[in-house]
């Protein structure tokens, strides 16, 4: 499914490349630098995909995230989120090794070992108490480290998957094949678990972004351009490992959100 979409996006991109925006002439250096800073030659196509994604988000994804927040108690959501994050740690460790960060990889492995056992399948995050903080790496970040630049090439909005760029599209494809849990077990139950994991991960991420995305939508004059800029900035920060580790807290007070 994911791969199919990627292929579709690549095809569309190739088809529209002929009609895409060209850089301004050398005689206008400032307009040129702005063009390259924006790094979005496929903008006309990207805007169409963005509008489609927005519709899907407003009609489906955001409402589901709201319901998830409303009906699943906070401690349960934290536990689910922790378990999902935990499953990503082995791959994170592998990417850290590939990025030449063996210390970090060792921490990720330690974190996985502690939380998978003492933390009961990753539900409880005791590793943070031991100083083994949350971390996340993907193939896109690894490619960025290897390339020695945070510039990931032209911006690409993927159908359903959202903002990306040439580097991160390649990264997504690699991530798809390097997920160890994709190779373990078989049968209907395993398949169902796999699908629920992807669904939960999507809803969990969207739930955490309800307020930030609402705020950005509300305050921006050009939401598409704002998202593109935020995506560039956030990916650069992730590649440079400048993101603050964020621990999910259990809130047992039973208070409704807001």
């Amino acid at each position: 499914m994911r791969l199919h979409l990627l292929r579709l996006a690549a095809l569309l991109a190739a088809g529209l490349a002929a009609g895409c925006a060209l850089p301004p002439p050398e005689s206008e250096p400032e307009a040129r630098s702005e063009y390259f800073e924006r790094n979005d030659p496929l903008e006309p196509l990207n805007r169409v995909t963005h509008t489609f994604n927005e519709a899907v988000d407003v009609m489906l994804l955001r409402p589901v995230a709201e319901m998830y927040r409303l009906f699943i108690p906070q401690p349960l959501r934290t536990g689910i989120g922790n378990a999902i994050d935990n499953l990503l740690l082995p791959r994170t460790a592998a990417y850290q090794l590939l990025q030449g960060k063996p210390d970090k990889a060792a921490e990720a492995v330690g974190r996985f070992a502690v939380n998978s056992t003492v933390g009961i399948l990753g539900i409880f995050d005791f590793a943070s108490d031991l100083g083994l903080e949350p971390q996340f790496e993907d193939a896109g970040q690894t490619l960025g480290v290897w390339a020695g630049t945070t510039n990931g090439g032209p911006y690409i909005v993927l159908p359903l998957l959202g903002p990306s760029n040439v580097r991160d599209v390649a990264g997504r494809a690699v991530d798809f094949f390097t997920d160890p849990w994709g190779y373990l077990g078989q049968g209907d139950t395993v398949e169902a678990l796999r699908v629920s994991r992807v669904a939960l991960q999507t809803v969990d991420t969207r739930e955490q972004l309800i307020e930030p995305i609402d705020a950005l939508r509300e305050s921006s004059l050009d939401y598409y351009a704002a998202v593109r800029s935020v995506y560039h900035q956030q990916r650069a920060r992730e590649i440079l490992d400048q993101t603050e580790p964020r621990r999910r807290r259990f809130d047992w007070s039973g208070q409704p959100p807001r």
Binding site: D222, A226, T243
Partner: peptide
């Protein structure tokens, strides 16, 4: 905010509004 610079985001947004308005500052 959480690693996103407001002035960089706004600059990118405003320049996009101007560009889509045919390069006129009035559009912004």
């Amino acid at each position: 905010a959480e690693g996103t610079s407001l002035r960089i985001t706004q600059r990118s947004e405003y320049s996009s509004v101007i560009q889509r308005g045919g390069g006129r500052l009035d559009a912004l």
